[in-house]
Simulated assay, not measured.
Amino acid sequence: MQFEFTRRRSARSPVTDAATFRVARLNQAPNAGKPGLDCSHVIDRSYNYHSPRELRWHLAERFGLAPAAVSVREARA
């Protein structure tokens, strides 16, 4: 499954002092000419992600898939 996300800035991590982000919008990526579907409701958008990789693992767990079967990319503005 492919997903596109729109990033929203968030706080610095109190544990790692690294920048984090929240997901403003999550869409299933367009496929075969069909528009992407809004999937924002399947995640907690108040969670502070440390990386797109963490988001990918979260989505894999949510959909019961292997992490290798999920890809994420940031949507172009």
Rank of each mutant, 00 (worst) to 15 (best):
Y47V: 01
P14D: 04
D38M: 11
A29H: 13
E61T: 04
R12K: 10
A11P: 02
G64L: 13
G36V: 03
P67A: 07
M1K: 13
S51I: 09
S46L: 01
Y49C: 04
L55W: 11
E74K: 13
G64W: 06
T6N: 01
N31C: 09
A66E: 14
A69L: 08
V70I: 11
L55K: 13
P67R: 14
S71V: 08
A24K: 14
L55Q: 09
E4H: 11
N31W: 10
Y47P: 00
P30I: 01
E74F: 02
S71N: 15
A66V: 05
S71P: 05
F21D: 13
V72H: 03
R73Q: 15
S46Y: 00
A68W: 06
A68V: 08
A32C: 14
A75P: 14
P67M: 09
C39M: 11
V42W: 09
S10C: 09
S46M: 03
L59N: 01
A69W: 01
S46E: 08
S13A: 11
P30S: 05
H58I: 04
R8D: 04
P14N: 09
S51T: 13
N48I: 03
N27G: 02
L26G: 13
P14T: 05
R9G: 06
P14R: 13
N31E: 10
E74T: 05
V70Y: 01
P67Y: 10
A29W: 03
N31T: 08
V23Y: 02
P52I: 05
A11R: 12
L55D: 12
G33M: 10
R76T: 05
S46Q: 08
S40N: 05
R53S: 11
F21R: 15
V42D: 03
L65Y: 07
S10V: 05
A69E: 15
S10N: 14
F5Y: 15
L59H: 01
L59P: 01
L26K: 06
D38Y: 12
R62G: 02
R45S: 04
W57V: 03
V23H: 03
S13N: 15
R45I: 02
L26R: 06
R73K: 14
Y49W: 08
F3H: 05
S40E: 02
A18H: 12
A66G: 11
R53K: 15
P30H: 04
R25Y: 00
V15F: 07
T20L: 05
V42P: 08
A68T: 08
R9D: 11
E61S: 07
R62C: 04
E54V: 02
N48Q: 14
K34M: 06
K34V: 01
V72M: 06
N27P: 00
P52W: 01
A68R: 15
G33T: 06
I43F: 03
V72D: 01
A66D: 12
R62T: 08
V70S: 00
F21H: 12
D38I: 05
D44W: 06
A19M: 11
P30K: 03
L26C: 11
R25N: 03
V15M: 07
R12P: 04
V42K: 05
E74Y: 06
G33V: 07
L37S: 12
R22D: 03
F63R: 15
M1W: 07
H50P: 04
Y47K: 02
S71K: 14
S71G: 14
F21W: 12
A32W: 13
R8F: 01
D38T: 10
R9I: 02
N31Y: 12
P52F: 02
